[in-house]
């Protein structure tokens, strides 16, 4: 099959970018979207041009490194899918596909389709952990955790940190990301001791990084590859007030 890719090209953060069109031939339906870009890059190399910079690593939907805004949707046309798991069978022969980097002030463009998501790491560094030194843990079964609690924590913990939530949010809000980590840790008994401090510090960092407000459009939970529920944000809001008023 044949597709026209309309791809955002930008040398570096300071530069102005622009779309450039590439007609790509010899594609097959079972190629993944990233393999199509690989293929395009090989043709660019042979023409002596600089390749399109885009990110990927595991290519099985778990590392969270890939992330492209494809035809108006974060990670492409399907719900709950990463870019690496998008295949060309989701497009029609002859389609034009618009390919853009994640857009948010907190995610500056590094080059072409690569953005800098280190703001996420800095949020995690403000309490997205349980302070447990290696070698200090009690016997694992000494802390009983009900299945429902463990499942709920796991639902939130599944976040892969891809940034689709921020990318799709009209406000560039990181509320889903931040709330997922807060709820993962604050739900578990091990995380309870630092619960209030964690909420205060992580949300403060979220504000500091320049993310927008959450207005509950719900776009994030649809684009989230792990389908993390927006109810997490509501729960974080409750935890925030608890931390502010009662702690």
């Amino acid at each position: 099959m044949q597709l026209t890719f309309r791809i955002w090209r930008q040398e570096q953060f300071q530069d102005k970018g622009a779309f450039k069109e590439y007609l790509v031939d010899h594609l097959t339906e079972d190629m993944s979207f990233l393999e199509a870009l690989d293929h395009l890059n090989e043709t660019l190399v042979l023409k002596g041009e600089r390749v399109i910079a885009f990110e990927y690593d595991c290519r099985e939907g778990i590392c969270g490194q890939c992330g492209i805004f494809i035809n108006g949707r974060a990670h492409g046309p399907h719900d709950h899918v990463t870019t690496c798991q998008l295949h060309l069978r989701s497009f029609q022969d002859g389609d034009t596909v618009t390919v853009e980097p994640w857009r948010a002030k907190a995610f500056p463009v590094v080059q072409d389709l690569i953005v800098d998501r280190s703001a996420f790491d800095r949020i995690i560094a403000q309490g997205g952990y349980i302070s447990a030194k290696t070698g200090t843990a009690p016997e694992a079964n000494a802390i009983l955790i009900g299945k429902e609690t463990a499942d709920k924590a796991m639902d939130a913990a599944a976040c892969i940190g891809c940034g689709a939530c921020v990318a799709t949010c009209k406000n560039g809000s990181a509320a889903l990301f931040t709330s997922a980590k807060i709820n993962h840790l604050n739900t578990l008994p091990q995380g309870k001791l630092e619960a209030d401090q964690r909420v205060r510090d992580m949300t403060a960092q979220m504000e500091e990084e320049g993310f927008g407000h959450c207005s509950f459009t719900g776009a994030c939970e649809v684009e989230c590859p792990e389908g993390i529920s927006i109810a997490n944000i509501a729960e974080m809001n409750a935890r925030y007030w608890k931390a502010r008023l009662f702690a």
Partner: peptide, 12 residues
């Protein structure tokens, strides 16, 4: 024990 303490939500 170590991973449980660090908050890994192992199946229960």
């Amino acid at each position: 024990d170590h991973f449980t303490q660090q908050g890994v939500p192992f199946a229960r």
